[in-house]
Design a protein around this nucleic acid. Structure first.
Lengths: 340, 340
DNA sequence: GGATTTTACCAAAGCGCTTTGAATAGATTT
DNA sequence: AAATCTATTCAAAGCGCTTTGGTAAAATCC
């Protein structure tokens, strides 16, 4: 059943039926009710392609994966999108996913913009010198960045959590507990979130007059194995760190494995703080000892980014959002005073 | 630049330009070359909505999330889709994602079918009595199921890995090593994959004349915490199992945590076999000891399901695929003979 | 060399919707 | 009672593409 058929059935013109269904005012209440009812009865659904062609609005948001970075965003991605999906579904938007293939990311954006395939895109995993925002500004495709591009704070719409502040406070907690030698097990540091975390870590050390020791800092893919391998390396050093700051829950599992293997006691011999993105299948509180974490929900972030993007799309003249969310520091059992 | 503009510029009709670009034969080679070149020069891209409206083909595949089941598919999902994304990107297909919102899954399918929003859908995480395939058959929306619906093997297109065979062989490996008391830490058993794994486990025990003990079997969300909690419970029993079969890498991390905590030695005091979906951030070989696993790549499965679906879409009369992939059993260090 | 086929192109219709501009009838104003 | 609004409705154009049903010109046939 298409619009014309429905109109014919109702003895109305397609114009009126369309207006009735889309809530325009120039339709009498009686007619609107009649139309709504019959539309429901026939299970009428407007053809989305026709509507898009006619209105020029896709009612679709694009999520494009940088093919080379897929791996490390992976475990977080589904939760990030899950948070967004709900927002979109409520407003009748769809999500268009692109990953892989031979076409590069920037060219996908170009194609999206030109064909009107999407009304906007979400930029994930920004680099410290990301080239995507230049392009998106140029082609005028609405977007919101989840995270920031290095230290740039203006000129593009973003929503981020305070990774710098989080790791600064976490580091400070450790120094306050007397730890002077704190290892860092970070994500890839050309990604801004990891870059910021290192900055926070560095700054807190500096404030205490401690200096950075690159030999106890690691930045790389956030896998369980990297957590294991590098924490083990650090903990076997003669002058081993007494505390570790870890950028992901997955890595910390590897770290705990290493710690146990070396016969060390978490919270006593070595203190651990990890960043927890709130993944539903990895619970920091359920670990033994329960993990002290910097916590922010990747799912909530996904939802918020979606909201911001929809706002921009609905009103392109609205203010560019620059939204920084605080990160909770939750002290649990994996941190304790340094032992001498 | 739209088709008409391009045609005008070339002094051709839109008909000819369209045909040239789409590879129809009734265009001279010279003209085709000229069109291709100018199209590239202008960066012309056909408007996808217009094309979809005209052809009735969406060039889009839908992935709809069962909202209640989102949680447990999550960690696997991104890899599953990543495998598919590549296939789709190569063939110029897009992925439409739906999750959350107030609309229920079946009604999303209905909408997709009616509006022609997608050319087909992938059904993930089938239950043992899944209602989705009935609906999809009824509304004639092409689909492929990743997995199976309980013990049904025909009447719908599917691609699955041999979960039953895998756990049967894994169990047999353990019984051959002398283990008579083997615990099972499984996923939710109303999902077919977990149901099949239990069948395989049960059958292998039966073949050895061993009987099932429900008190050492668990089925639930595949979280790290469940792995920890339930393995710990089992290993603290007076008559504790000497080996555990675990349905996911995430769970096995929890299991290893419990084992270490109890001071047991993996491979000696307790043997472990886990199922490994080949997630890039969780490497079975990197664990200590390296983990004996049943292994199948969820990423490859995602790609294969995508291929099958595209085949069906291209030729609806083609044979319904029923494809069962074997699962590798890779013996590493976490399994050893039982100790008395 | 006229009849037939093939080649290369085009005009126009149509996909299913939205939206502009106009029309009708009834209500209100002067 | 004529003039002006207002509330409803509609016809038709248009979104940008594909595809059907042609038509000339060139190539092939007998």
């Amino acid at each position: 059943m298409d619009l014309r058929g429905l109109a014919k059935h109702l003895n109305l013109s397609p114009t009126t039926v369309s207006r009735a269904l889309n809530g325009y005012p120039e339709v009498s209440e009686a007619t609107r009710r009649r139309v709504d009812e019959e539309a429901r009865r026939f299970g009428y659904r407007p053809n989305p392609h026709a509507r898009r062609l006619a209105t020029g609005r896709a009612h679709t948001i694009g999520y494009v994966f940088p093919s080379d970075r897929t791996l490390m965003i992976d475990p977080l991605f589904s939760d990030f999108v899950a948070g967004a999906a709900d927002v979109y579904a409520m407003q009748g938007f769809d999500i268009l996913l692109h990953a892989g293939g031979q076409e590069d990311e920037l060219s996908v954006y170009r194609r999206y913009a030109q064909g009107g395939a999407v009304d906007g895109v979400v930029v994930q995993g920004p680099h410290i010198d990301d080239t995507r925002i230049e392009l998106l500004n140029e082609i005028k495709l609405p977007y919101v960045v989840h995270g920031r591009v290095g230290d740039r704070e203006t000129g593009y719409p973003w929503m981020d959590v305070d990774n710098r502040g989080a790791f600064q406070r976490a580091t400070k907690l450790l120094t306050d507990l007397g730890h002077g030698r704190i290892g860092l097990i970070n994500g890839l540091e050309n990604l801004t979130f990891a870059f910021h975390r290192r900055q926070g870590y560095a700054q807190a050390l500096k404030e205490k007059g401690l200096n950075l020791d690159p030999s106890i800092m690691f930045g790389g893919a956030m896998t369980e194995e990297n957590g294991y391998r590098h924490s083990k390396r650090l903990l076997q050093m003669a002058n081993r760190p007494t505390a570790l700051l870890i950028s992901s829950m997955l890595m910390v599992l590897g770290v705990m494995r290493a710690v146990n293997e070396l016969g060390l006691i978490i919270g006593a011999d070595v203190s651990l703080i990890a960043h927890d993105d709130g993944l539903p299948f990895l619970n920091a509180e359920g670990l033994v000892p329960a993990l002290t974490t910097t916590t922010s929900s990747i799912r909530a972030a996904g939802g918020r980014v979606a909201e911001l993007l929809l706002t921009i799309i609905a009103d392109p003249a609205s203010d560019q959002p620059h939204e920084l969310w605080p990160v909770d520091l939750i002290v649990r059992g994996s941190t304790g005073p340094v032992r001498h």
